[in-house]
């Protein structure tokens, strides 16, 4: 059983909620999106798919309350009206490991940054879950890209937060490592509310309970295959959906500027 389920069963407050962002965003008088409403469903994987530069990462950063360099006018609300502060864990394309810290210390960095006592036992347990027990004292430079991203996953889980915002965390990995990482991340983040930003239709089809396509024209819902994620690569429905998703991305309405 993972942390999310534990929390749900023991009923420690509101663990997750549906998040809705609506409004417009401009960067130095250039409007990136206007009159947009985006929803991340509670306890599910929402994949936000789109080409580079369309504003996917900006959406994620707005929800994470990270600097965006532009002006957002609108609201970010949760279905149970609780604040998002302190409820979000963040994973980026780069592993964001501190190169001077060991694997274990990187997993523990959140507690250290908040001046809290370190739960080394839990860190060791999470490192075991991502299969890095024998590398626990190594520095990031001694690990492969896939292993480093697994450390980042353990660090994300260590934060024990209901919402995970993932900004293309798998895109720098080779195909096989990426597939393994997708499965591991999906398994370990089960029960969390997850937003995955990606530009890979295959990844969205594999992991999304909900798939939202973001183009210059705005947001568009895409109905994912009926099988539950993680969907197999050779699943006929998934393959078909991937082709259709590619067509949506390349369709003329999508590429014309709104």
């Amino acid at each position: 059983m993972n942390d999310a389920e534990q929390h749900n069963e023991t009923g420690q407050g509101e663990w997750c909620a549906t998040i809705t962002l609506s409004g417009r965003f401009a960067h130095e008088h250039v409007t990136l999106f206007d009159d947009l409403t985006f929803t991340i469903a509670q306890g599910q994987w929402t994949c936000l798919l789109g080409p580079s530069g369309v504003g996917k990462t900006t959406l994620l950063r707005l929800i994470a309350d990270l600097p965006t360099g532009g002006q957002f006018s609108g609201t970010i609300t949760t279905s149970n009206a609780c604040s998002l502060e302190g409820r979000i864990a963040y994973m980026a394309q780069s592993d964001l490991l501190a190169p001077w810290l060991s694997v274990r210390d990187n997993v523990l960095i959140g507690a250290r940054l908040r001046d809290q006592t370190l739960d080394t036992q839990r860190a060791n347990h999470l490192i075991e879950q991502v299969g890095l027990t024998e590398h626990v004292t190594k520095r990031p430079s001694e690990l492969s890209g896939g292993m480093r991203q697994r450390v980042a996953l353990a660090r994300t889980l260590m934060e024990d937060r209901p919402i995970a915002l993932l900004d293309e965390p798998f895109s720098a990995l080779d195909a096989r490592t990426r597939a393994e990482m997708q499965e591991l991340t999906f398994e370990l983040l089960r029960g969390h509310t997850v937003l995955l930003v990606t530009h890979d239709p295959g990844e969205a089809v594999r992991l999304g309970h909900t798939i939202t396509v973001m183009t210059e024209a705005g947001l568009q819902e895409f109905i994912p295959p009926s099988a539950p994620p993680v969907r197999a690569h050779d699943n006929a429905d998934a393959m078909q959906a991937q082709v259709e998703l590619m067509n949506v991305l390349r369709s003329p309405e999508a590429s014309c500027v709104a």
């Binding site: 990270l66 980026a92 964001l96 501190a98 940054l113």
Partner: peptide, 11 residues
């Protein structure tokens, strides 16, 4: 990126 991470961790 590290500063972003610190921010989401309420450093």
């Amino acid at each position: 990126g590290l500063l972003d991470l610190g921010r989401t961790m309420n450093a």
